[in-house]
Design a binder for these strands. Sequence first.
RNA 1: CGGGGCGUAGCGCAGCCUGGUAGCGCAUCUGGUUUGGGACCAGAGGGUCGGGUGUUCGAAUCACCCCGCCCCGACCA
Length: 573
Amino acid sequence: MRYSKLFSPTLRDTPADAEVVSHQLLLRAGFIRRVTSGVYDYLPMGLRVLRKIEGIVREEMNRAGAQELLMPMVQPAEFWQKSGRWEKYGPELLRFKDRHDHESCLGPTHEEVICDLMSRELRSYKQLPMNLYQVQNKFRDEIRPRFGLMRGREFVMKDAYSFHANSECLAAEYKNMFDTYHRIFNRLGLKFRAVEADNGSIGGSSSHEFHVLAESGEDLIAHCSGCSYAANVEKAMAIPHVFQGTAGELTEVSTPNKTAVEDVASFLNVANESLLKTLIFKVSGGELDGQTIAACVRGDDQLQDVKLTRVLGATEIEMASDEDVKSIGGIVGYVGPVGLSCPVYIDSAIKNAEGMIMGSNKADTHTAGVSINRDVPNAIIADLRQTQANDTCFSCHGFMELSRGIEVGHIFELGTVYSQPMEVMFQDENGKRAVATMGCYGIGVSRLMAAVVEQCNDEKGIAWPLNIAPFDVSVVSVGKNEAVAEAAANIYNDLIKAGVNALFDDRNERPGVKFKDAELMGIPLTIVVGDRGLESDALELKPRLGEATESSLAGINQAALDMLATIAAKESN
RNA sequence: CGGGGCGUAGCGCAGCCUGGUAGCGCAUCUGGUUUGGGACCAGAGGGUCGGGUGUUCGAAUCACCCCGCCCCGACCA
């Protein structure tokens, strides 16, 4: 490709509305442009990278025994009504009617479609197991699209669905995918971590997320310094230090205008951990739909709302209004678990606690000397607190650490959550009808592009790993004389013949402009062809990262191949 | 959905408070000079100032409504 013909509009200034570095650089380097909120064009350079990432994903999926297919983006409402998600899936599901008034939606995921397909085609256990995948655009009408490709509404995803005759077989495929994901993210040169995860709305049992470690990540993950335990904070368990209270009688204390934990604690001159924090929620979905409930955690802990949502079997919870709090006998700012006319959930870290201080459900008053067992005997005990840094690991004696992560992959053992309602049946060895057991495995392909940039950049711009760079080499001609142009063109042509994915920067631009653009766009190797180098027969090879070296004109082709091999070798470590 | 901010040329911004018919840098085009780290000179093109309504002799500027975008929050008793 000649740069003079390349559509790659680079920007000198950083667009004002781009916050994170990947968004800024992808925009500046001319890889993407915004169409509307959360929706982007992939320009030629961006598409090249996207295709390369897809290529690696495909290779590894195929190697793992999966088969590619392609499902539609538009899906009929009937499928979703059958699976029960037409009601469950919120406003993220973009619904519309076609000209015949037929209800449809844009696919945010494809369990329904694949199940419908399989329910028609699957007959015998002899066809199983089967793992089918696609690389497709998904649309989710996100509450808040942000950070460019990181959280878009339309995005590219690889999703795979496996079908099995039994759960042992599913477990084996789950492991197979777990390993495959490690290979994929390793090939992309990412620093990542697999973590145990909450299954969320998709349902099922076991589940792991794959997180690229980056400060700009939207997720918090907890991992042990001493063993391999790692989990999303939405699920992570850990042991907090023990609260040593003294058992005693219930005693009311006056705490005028002190409602926040810190204020009450400092007013009473006690530690935050001796307080009992009581939060009131309104539940949506599940058996408690529409009810108000109370949840208690220690004053120095934070309630993990995903954990609570799961414990409640709810689809969503939200903070109760002042009236709701009143309706169960509480008073905002001074709520305590005793005497409330609603179910009370208490964090397991304080199930046997003594001598805590709680709200009295009376204005300006707290109550000291609380014994959870004695005073809140009907409470439901559950793990509700969010793991904190320096908690003790529950499986070894290490301490927990927290990191930010970008979720780029998620695998699930779904079981029969979808195959049951969608009637994905087959005849087993005994001739009986059985429901297929499923797994599903996603990778955010376009998000990966952003995640790689988050990890691979410096003050000059992007620094793509060779594996997914839009071009391997940029041949930059410097100066305007004929000899230079000819030598550069020859080098470029030879590289192309040698199978190298080369760009020829033949523009009539000053050297500085060409160098800056190559660096911004993150091309791994630049060959500088100028009259200075031609005269001394020492052309420069500049890796995007690392020291420049020189080569004679005759040996430049081989030198470039060697340099690329060196870069590749370094990256595969 | 709640809170905050923003919307003026492709990008980055000024002008708005105190109304008088739009400006700067970069980019673009033409000519010339230049060419190993984002050149210089001269000239040029490009904006219904997000949209609408209103106030006014007159609106980018004031008022109201709408739209779009960005950030934060949705953790609190």
